[in-house]
Design a protein around this nucleic acid. Sequence first.
DNA 1: ATGGTCGGCAACCGA
Length: 271
Amino acid sequence: MSLTITSWNINSVRLRIELVAKFVKAVRPDILCLQETKCPDDKFPLKRFKRLGYEHVALNGQKGYHGVVVLSRLPFEATNIRTFCDNLDSRHVSVMLGARAGLARPLTLHNFYVPAGGDIPDPASNPKFAHKLAFLDEMRDCAELHPGDADHHVLVGDLNVAPHEHDVWSHRQLLDVVSHTPLECEKLLAVRDRGGWIDVARARVPLSEKLYTWWSYRAADWQAADRGRRLDHIWVSPALAGRVGGFHVARRARGWERPSDHVPVTTVLEL
DNA sequence: ATGGTCGGCAACCGA
């Protein structure tokens, strides 16, 4: 069977519910992972998603800030929420799919929203950047994020780091800009390498090619300027590396009316 | 070199 998984920082799920509907009607992902839902769980538009075919929902929302959710056409065996840095912010939710979803081998999926880190790239003077770095260190050391050789694990989300030279519009001009500083790039790659994860986007798109998933709201014309960054990621465990059937960045979604500043990233797994 | 825009929620904080 093939399993389509999308990750999208939606920047308010209630405000953009019709954009989500438009996307899922076109792409029909089996599993949709959203970040920055900015929605308490008791206000989440469950009925609308049910009508769209997503009956199985793992929620981790909070009022006003952050918030993640996994929406699925297939049932879960289990769901889990982790906290990082002794902080109750809603930045992680994971699900496990198995026999009930028709999978021969269980699949674990983590959905993350890594702290953005504020403006000043100095952990000594900027607590938000210190928090981001500590969050990445804790991810690196988290045993649940170290899949075994045979495990089918997926990690997606807005990781708020563009780790490679061509993950940003200008490597030189962004070296001191939070999201592309060498320190946080090293830390994100350490999370990836400690877990043995494969970066699906860069397995499919050469490192020499520009690739972005986010464009600032502050540009007068985002498309003309094209000053993007690749902040949204899909990683798979080594056992899934040979089962990636497709990968796509829905750049067109940035041009929709009242868009999120992030666009959906999608992969297809052949299981 | 600087400021440029969003969303939540009701004055700014976070991005």
